[in-house]
């Protein structure tokens, strides 16, 4: 009897669930359609037009993409962005992993966690400007210290070869705590019994890091990498307030080029084409990352 009763009640409940579920999903769905799907479609459409915002757009077919392929500034900009992402993600991931493991293995202090996360509370723009002042060639405190130590002053933001590494590291400084926190959350999901077993077997800390932490952390780590790489490709605000693409386009990252084309030069069509290209690059990279890191599967089996 009891079995039959519950079986007949279930479909009813499920139908009720669907309605409630739809109601709950609706606001998010609306936002998704209005602020993501529609602008993306419109952006793709605009990338095939010539559009200055004030007059009607003109269909120009593949002109923008032809221009993109032949535009040295675009390729230069893509190279600059790649260089930024490599330095930014490379340093940030290693540092965040290190901080997270240290927090996990050594301390339970919430104060320490708070300190690690503190730079993340500062906005990108403020962080950029503060570092701009600190590292100013002539007036910066940072350069005063460097000179006091007996080295030559360094034009961190003014020198073409220093500017991108400097901006990449400023953003590492701001984001490393947040990334560390994500990894830290992943670490906490690893059962302490695995470590206990390791300790019983006489494994060293390094051995446990290699054979327990890294493999069990892989799904979280790959997710963190996917998120941070996508975010890194979209760098804009820090560059905009520090170097603004200077000197001589040495820091002209893709998003800055897009912004400049669209809002300063009113070439919305071409700017859209570059945005679409950036979207394609990011899609390919994300899919590759997902496949290569087998992010969907855990090693716990």
């Amino acid at each position: 009897m009891a079995v039959i009763k519950s079986a007949s009640a279930a479909p009813n409940r499920r139908r009720g669930d669907t309605r409630v579920a739809l109601a709950f999903v609706a606001p998010a769905m609306l936002g998704y359609l209005v602020f993501l799907v529609w602008p993306t479609l419109r952006g793709v459409y605009l990338s095939f037009t010539s559009f200055d915002l004030l007059s009607e757009e003109k269909w120009t077919g593949l002109d923008n993409y032809r221009r993109l392929v032949n535009d040295p500034v675009f390729w230069d900009s893509l190279g600059v962005t790649l260089q930024y992402v490599m330095i930014n993600i490379g340093v940030q991931t290693v540092a965040a992993l290190l901080i997270a493991v240290l927090m996990h293995r050594l301390t339970r202090s919430t104060v320490v966690r708070g300190i690690v996360l503190a730079p993340y509370l500062v906005s990108n723009v403020v962080a950029g400007i503060v570092w701009l002042w600190i590292l100013d060639t002539q007036l910066g405190v940072g350069n005063e210290v460097i000179e006091w130590l007996g080295f030559d002053r360094i034009a961190f933001f003014g020198d073409a070869s220093w500017a991108i590494p400097t901006i990449a590291l400023v953003n590492v400084w701001r984001h490393v705590g947040y990334t560390a926190l994500l990894i830290f959350a992943g670490l906490q999901s690893i059962s302490p019994t695995v470590y206990e077993a390791g300790r019983v077997d006489g494994a060293s800390e390094w051995r446990m890091f290699r054979s327990i932490t890294v493999p069990l952390l892989r799904p979280v780590l790959s997710l963190v990498l996917i998120i941070t790489v996508v975010g890194s490709f979209q760098v804009f605000d820090t560059v905009s307030v520090t170097t603004d693409g200077k000197p001589a386009n040495a820091t002209n990252v893709l998003q800055l080029y897009v912004y400049d084309l669209a809002f300063d030069r009113l070439q919305f069509g071409y700017a859209s084409a570059i945005s679409v290209a950036l979207m394609l690059v990011l899609t390919v990279i994300t899919v590759m990352q997902y496949r290569l890191m087998r992010a969907g599967r855990s090693d716990l089996g």
Partner: peptide, 15 residues
């Protein structure tokens, strides 16, 4: 002064 000494915090009047 060289180009790299110019910055948005170091206008001529500051120099």
């Amino acid at each position: 002064a060289p180009l790299e000494d110019y910055s948005q915090t170091n206008f001529p009047e500051v120099q």
